[in-house]
Amino acid sequence: MLKMTPLNQTHRDMNAKMVDFGGWDMPLHYGSQLDEHHKVRQDAGMFDVSHMLPVDIKGDNVRDFLRRLVANNVDKLTLPGKALYSCMLTPQGGIIDDLIIYFLSETWFRIVVNAGTADKDVAWMLKQRDAFAPHLEITPRRDLAMIAIQGPNARAKVWQVIPGSQSTTEELKLFQSTVVNQYFIARTGYTGEDGFEIILPAADAPAFWQALHTAGVAPAGLGARDTLRLEAGMNLYGQDMDETKNPLESGLAWTVDLKSERDFIGKQALLDASVTQQLIGLVLIDRGVLRSHQQVVSQQNGVEYQGEITSGGFSPTMNQSIALARLSVQIAVGDEVDVLVRDKKLRAKVVKYPFVRNGKTLV
Results as ranks from 00 to 15, higher is better:
81 G>L: 08
117 T>W: 04
87 C>W: 14
102 Y>K: 02
105 S>K: 10
75 D>Y: 14
110 R>H: 03
91 P>Y: 11
116 G>A: 13
89 L>V: 14
120 K>M: 02
122 V>D: 06
81 G>I: 02
83 A>I: 04
106 E>T: 08
99 L>D: 01
97 D>F: 01
106 E>Y: 09
94 G>M: 09
115 A>N: 02
106 E>V: 07
91 P>W: 11
99 L>C: 06
122 V>R: 03
100 I>A: 09
107 T>L: 04
117 T>L: 12
77 L>V: 02
82 K>P: 00
87 C>P: 15
122 V>A: 09
92 Q>F: 05
81 G>W: 02
81 G>V: 00
102 Y>C: 07
79 L>S: 08
78 T>R: 13
86 S>T: 15
102 Y>F: 08
119 D>K: 14
93 G>D: 12
75 D>Q: 12
105 S>Q: 09
108 W>V: 00
109 F>G: 10
98 D>A: 05
102 Y>L: 05
102 Y>R: 03
91 P>D: 09
98 D>V: 06
109 F>N: 05
89 L>K: 14
76 K>S: 12
120 K>Q: 03
98 D>C: 03
106 E>W: 06
78 T>W: 10
118 A>V: 06
103 F>K: 03
112 V>L: 14
102 Y>W: 07
85 Y>E: 15
93 G>I: 11
105 S>F: 09
76 K>E: 10
108 W>K: 08
122 V>W: 06
87 C>Y: 15
94 G>W: 06
116 G>K: 12
75 D>V: 09
118 A>Y: 11
86 S>H: 10
76 K>A: 08
75 D>S: 12
87 C>H: 15
101 I>G: 10
119 D>E: 15
86 S>D: 11
96 I>N: 04
106 E>R: 09
81 G>F: 02
120 K>D: 00
120 K>I: 02
109 F>R: 04
115 A>V: 04
94 G>P: 07
83 A>T: 10
111 I>Q: 13
104 L>S: 00
93 G>P: 12
100 I>Q: 13
86 S>W: 09
103 F>Q: 03
119 D>G: 07
119 D>Q: 11
84 L>H: 04
113 V>I: 14
86 S>G: 13
96 I>C: 05
107 T>P: 03
87 C>K: 12
92 Q>S: 15
94 G>C: 08
99 L>K: 08
81 G>Y: 04
104 L>V: 04
90 T>F: 15
101 I>N: 05
119 D>A: 11
103 F>W: 09
118 A>M: 09
122 V>K: 12
107 T>C: 01
122 V>S: 09
115 A>P: 00
115 A>L: 03
94 G>N: 07
84 L>T: 05
76 K>V: 01
105 S>W: 03
75 D>K: 11
94 G>D: 07
119 D>L: 13
83 A>F: 01
114 N>S: 11
104 L>Y: 07
82 K>I: 00
97 D>M: 06
104 L>P: 00
83 A>C: 13
114 N>M: 05
123 A>T: 15
104 L>G: 00
81 G>C: 05
108 W>I: 01
83 A>P: 02
97 D>I: 00
119 D>P: 00
121 D>R: 08
